[in-house]
Design a protein around this nucleic acid. Structure first.
Length: 204
DNA sequence: CCAAGGATTGGC
DNA sequence: CCAATCCTTGGA
């Protein structure tokens, strides 16, 4: 799970599994600007991703995988290119894309997007984004993102990308300080606190 | 089995 | 600031 170009090909093309089968943080950064598509009952709902967070590896104390492959988190240990959707606080659904090599628990939380087509609600915030696109745990958890119902389309490169601490993971101690939140600079659709700084050109 | 708490949101 | 609301997890 290394290297690989930033975009897989032509805008409008569905991202292939190989896109997801790389380092979580690279996938999180490169998902910015791409189009999340949910098709249900012939209705197409689309939003442009503007904010993500990486949850990376078995030692990441902020990750749902921190307790190992439990019933909920097992999907993070599975093959990449699959949706991980869970219910938080009994009120909001959150969608991730599973990344990295099978057996290495990692995923990218989709935190916010810009509405493009058919959105039912605000797409600002992870719970709102799912609600806007009709994505929910019982319906979409475990869904293969190379299928025709829920996937991400390639798109032209976005503007500058910022990175900073992840949101609401203070319980994770030092891991809460990892700069694994990514956002499109200047987008009014980015949720939560302001993102700290610009991403460094090539280092991590 | 039970208690605790959460990768959030919206209202006061 | 705080409660909603239910699923997940760890511990007794």
């Amino acid at each position: 799970m290394e290297g690989k170009p930033s975009s897989s090909g032509a805008p409008g093309a569905k991202l292939p599994r190989a896109f997801y089968a790389r380092d979580t943080r690279d996938v999180a950064r490169e998902l910015i600007g791409k189009l999340l598509v949910h098709v249900e009952g012939g209705v197409r709902r689309v939003a442009r991703i503007v904010e993500t967070e990486a949850y990376h590896g078995p030692d990441d104390r902020a990750s749902h995988a921190r307790f190992g492959p439990t019933r909920r988190a097992a999907i993070m240990f599975g093959p990449p290119g699959v949706a991980y959707v869970y219910l938080i606080y009994g009120t909001s659904h959150c969608m991730n894309v599973v990344t990295g090599a099978e057996g290495f628990p990692s995923a990218v939380l989709l935190r916010a997007a810009e509405p493009v087509e058919g959105c039912l609600h605000s797409t600002r915030g992870p719970g709102n984004l799912c609600r806007a696109l009709g994505i929910r745990r019982q319906h979409d958890n475990g869904r293969d993102l190379t299928g025709d119902d829920l996937f991400v389309e390639d798109a032209p490169p976005p503007g500058p990308i910022l990175s900073g601490r992840r949101v609401n993971v203070d319980y994770a101690g030092p891991w809460s300080e990892k700069p694994w939140r990514y956002a499109l600079a200047g987008s009014p659709w980015v949720s939560g606190p302001r993102v700290a700084g610009r991403t460094k050109p090539r280092r991590r």
